[in-house]
Design a protein around this nucleic acid. Structure first.
Length: 150
DNA sequence: GCCAACGTTGGC
DNA sequence: GCCAACGTTGGC
């Protein structure tokens, strides 16, 4: 079993929204590295740190599970969608998504500022300079360490 | 294939 | 709102 961190802007889709919906198709990923992690790395049951980005208090706010293998993201074919990609075809879809299932909220937000203070997390892509990946792998040791901070 | 211009991400 | 960092685009 592997572990991941997935970013979401709470104004768009928050941990509370996931708690309400239980399962959500994680559409809109338009970055090849992130897509490849979903396609080649993710398995049903993998752990997900749910991260709030671009907000007052960026940080890890909950735990989710991967609930499906990667499959084509339908928003890439929808001309009315923000995520439309005219260059993608149904025969050879460029963008994939996975379903993500709510597990629980953390007791508190483990903030980005806090994560940056711990040397144990120096290899975590999230805390590296200029990192903008929205889907990234997390080592088991990092997963355990972050959840011990909660 | 290079690289400048441009758009986006996301912390602050 | 600012801006650093980075990915993508497109002219050549």
């Amino acid at each position: 079993m592997r572990y991941w961190l997935m970013k979401s802007e709470p104004d768009e889709f928050s941990i509370d929204a996931l708690a309400k919906k239980k399962v959500e198709p994680w559409n809109g990923v338009r970055n090849y590295q992130a897509r490849n992690f979903m396609r080649d790395g993710m398995k049903v049951g993998d752990g997900v740190l749910f991260y709030h980005s671009n907000c007052d208090e960026p940080g890890v706010v909950g735990i989710a599970r991967i609930a499906s293998a990667a499959y084509p993201d339908p928003t890439q074919f929808d001309a009315a969608s923000d995520y439309y990609d005219a260059a993608s075809t149904r025969e050879e879809p460029r963008w994939l998504m996975v379903d993500v299932a709510f597990e629980r909220k953390l007791r508190r937000t483990v903030t980005l500022a806090e994560l940056k203070t711990h040397g144990e997390l120096e290899d975590l892509a999230l805390v590296k300079r200029g990192n903008r990946l929205s889907v990234m792998p997390v080592a088991k040791s990092e997963w355990d360490f972050i959840l011990a901070l909660e």
